[in-house]
Design a binder for these strands. Sequence first.
DNA 1: CCGGAAACTTCTGTATACACTTTCCTCATA
DNA 2: TATGAGGAAAGTGTATACAGAAGTTTCCGG
Lengths: 212, 212
Amino acid sequence: MPTPRSTRAAADIRIDLLSGELRAGQKIVQESLAARYGISRIPLREALAQLQAEGLVVHEPNRGYFVARLRAEDMREVYRLREILEAEAITRACRHLSEADIERIVRIADDVESALSTGDLARIGAANRSFHFAVFEAAGMPRLTRILAGLWDSTEAYRGLYFQDPANHQHIIDEHAALLDALRRRDAKDAVVAQAAHRTLSLRNVSDRLPD
Amino acid sequence: MPTPRSTRAAADIRIDLLSGELRAGQKIVQESLAARYGISRIPLREALAQLQAEGLVVHEPNRGYFVARLRAEDMREVYRLREILEAEAITRACRHLSEADIERIVRIADDVESALSTGDLARIGAANRSFHFAVFEAAGMPRLTRILAGLWDSTEAYRGLYFQDPANHQHIIDEHAALLDALRRRDAKDAVVAQAAHRTLSLRNVSDRLPD
DNA sequence: CCGGAAACTTCTGTATACACTTTCCTCATA
DNA sequence: TATGAGGAAAGTGTATACAGAAGTTTCCGG
């Protein structure tokens, strides 16, 4: 396995955080959490450092890490930031997209469809993410891509819930198609609108499950 | 001293990175860098993890950390992202600012002026940063504040050069005053413009010193 | 003389161990 | 009963140590 323990731990913690296993505001005792994942504190701390950059945990010197409080309002912040930054990414992408880029994105969109038909949530999530980030990366702004990745990560666990409902599958396919169509025409405005529609739907889905 | 070694190391590395001591693309050998700062590899790794979130270094599993390549183009990306995100922060801040907030910001602006008169670069930098982040924080968007902090950090070392030139001192004072005036009037549009002027000037100053 | 595989070197990733800080409890005192 | 000093317990921050992966050199067969 080429994945370091710290990376895997970060993924595990994300799940536990967002599934409510680790509750908001709670102190994170490194020893016990490390034991839970069967690793030592060193890789755990690196995972926590990464999650801090995503805003899922906060750190106080000599006092340790605490679970950040995620409320509906936080979710709205994440989505507002995505709105702004994804608009920038897509607008720039429209300027730079080559035909090869578009072909590649089309192939990934096909992957998403075939993943949806299997119902394998992990595969759907991975494919969907690949699709959107293939577009974002075409903007040629690596920092922007990284920031967006952090924002996506911070709500990663909720996306599974969204994919779980088969009623959403056709929406996803349609919205990806709309985005692709706009990209083909290099129509930044339409592309931004298509992306926004996609995002708004999933925000509604997610924020219903949070306090406040 | 309440600062953990890892935090201090991150600051040290930032300086060495941006002063050219550590060159772009270069592999970071943890052992030697740790020795250089007189610490062990553990806090160094945590510092590197943090710097990765800022985009100053990149990590490849089992291969280690490498110095990110910073070109004028990267600087333009950082400033473009700041432009978008600071506009959002200031717009929201205008909605939420209380009189007490404004008073506090005024006091910090005075700190900046007195720091400028002493010529102490570290103090000027700290005061200037406090000033702008006091405004950003008033937006009530903690993730946005954190992202902006990362963007500021990634060019921190260059800001010193800007403050060093006394010709810029009056600019800084005037622009802070203009921003404050707009904030008092809760005029989001003017405030964004004032902030933009401030930023543009320092971008020009910084990007002249980079390759490409 | 060259290509490729095996041994070696170097460095990363992680476990263990310990010092120092914070927190909590106890108990004496007003 | 409330309060604060003192000390024990718990937990973080970091140094040291080691296993294993990546990179490098050496050596052999062609």
